[in-house]
Design a protein around this nucleic acid. Structure first.
Lengths: 210, 210
DNA sequence: TATTTTCCGTTGCAAAAGCAACACATTATG
DNA sequence: CATAATGTGTTGCTTTTGCAACGGAAAATA
């Protein structure tokens, strides 16, 4: 199995070769899918950005996950226990492939090359998702808003191989992602600037500490 | 592939048939493993309970995950970015199988039945881990200590198919698991009792709401 | 381009959570 | 069995966070 499996090329080659999938295109702010118990949908984001969003009974909005190119999502990854609404919202124009997980799992009758390759590579793809989720948990378990912000910035910095990077969120969305109040986060952001930890120019953050 | 793959029976049948694994036994409070960058260890907990614990620079202790029988863990699931210490502590006597992930992935030279079955079932096993992590994220994104407690209790209640259940943690550990201050959590627990949401007898919680 | 909508930045005040400390109970351990 | 270590329950005080509200900037839309 290849750790560096190239999803994008693979998809381009095979995405039209199987009957058991649906390809759809969404424009910004459209709802890509809603999580429904027992349907076991699995989706692949071919292009664009989308967020998994939860609205709870207190009216709080939480960005549970942020998806970019090649991300996997769908209720197959989620045990839906509460009555909270879970939906995936397109943050830009998106191209999405839809499957029912069992179809991938059991392969389709045609035994097509697409399904074969995908099911071979599924463990690695899902494993990537696990490491993403663990990073998210590391962020969320930080005890203060300051540590959450610094933790998230440090993650983006590592990903971009630079102390300077663009935020992939609006500040409103960032607060919903870190699961904190927006105004409290703005206050902390201001303190981080005043204390010389960061610089912020438009949507760009520059880390000033070693 | 079988969703109800019986790990335990499988392990019992095959756990001695492959060279590329190590089986070890730990007693309570021993360190099962420490997460080390790039080693890509994968472990299976055959029996007992263990916690993945993180100690951060502020001296806070966080229980990142709680493992019971058949749980998968190891740094293969974790991108180690920070300098925080990550270790798995046995909470009771434990039996653990150790692998290097690549050995499972690429199958061992013998092409033994054990590896074959395990790699066939790995997607489903990892998928279970994903759903667990998503439940954990749902808990951690709750905004108040009260909601975290109620969320966790409701989860245990669902798992035990009963409004009454034992806590798998000491209260000290529960606070570290929910990522809140212990004394603040105790205060909230008291309020939940006073407000008639729960009853607590020893280590047992009884949910009193519909 | 005019107008509506969303986002940013800020603040005062209230509520929640964290910190530190302590007594007592329970559980391990020599 | 005595003693040490760990866990529980509580409280006063401080700090952090959340809530509500507002004006202006920026972006989307008609």
């Amino acid at each position: 199995m290849n750790t560096n499996f190239d999803m994008q090329n693979f998809i381009l080659d095979f995405s039209n070769s199987c009957q058991k999938q649906q390809k759809k295109i969404f424009s910004k702010n459209e709802v890509v899918t809603t999580y429904i118990k027992n349907r076991n949908q699995l989706c692949i984001l071919l292009d664009g950005h989308a967020d998994l969003v939860r609205y709870d009974l207190n009216g709080n909005r939480t960005i549970v996950e942020h998806f970019s190119k090649n991300a996997l999502f769908g209720e197959v990854f989620y045990t839906i226990t509460t009555n909270n609404e879970l939906l995936v919202e397109a943050k830009s124009n998106c191209t999405v492939l839809f499957y029912i997980y069992d179809d991938i799992f059991h392969k389709c009758k045609n035994n097509c090359k697409f399904h074969q390759t995908l099911s071979e590579n599924l463990p690695q793809l899902i494993l990537n998702k696990v490491t993403d989720l663990n990073m998210r948990i590391e962020l969320l378990t930080k005890r203060s808003t300051r540590d959450k912000l610094l933790g998230y910035f440090s993650l983006l910095s590592t990903r971009n191989l630079s102390k300077s990077f663009e935020l992939p969120f609006s500040l409103t969305d960032l607060a919903d992602y870190l699961s904190v109040d927006r105004s409290a986060m703005m206050r902390e952001l201001k303190l981080l600037k005043e204390d010389g930890f960061i610089q912020k120019i438009g949507n760009r953050i520059i880390l000033l500490y070693k």
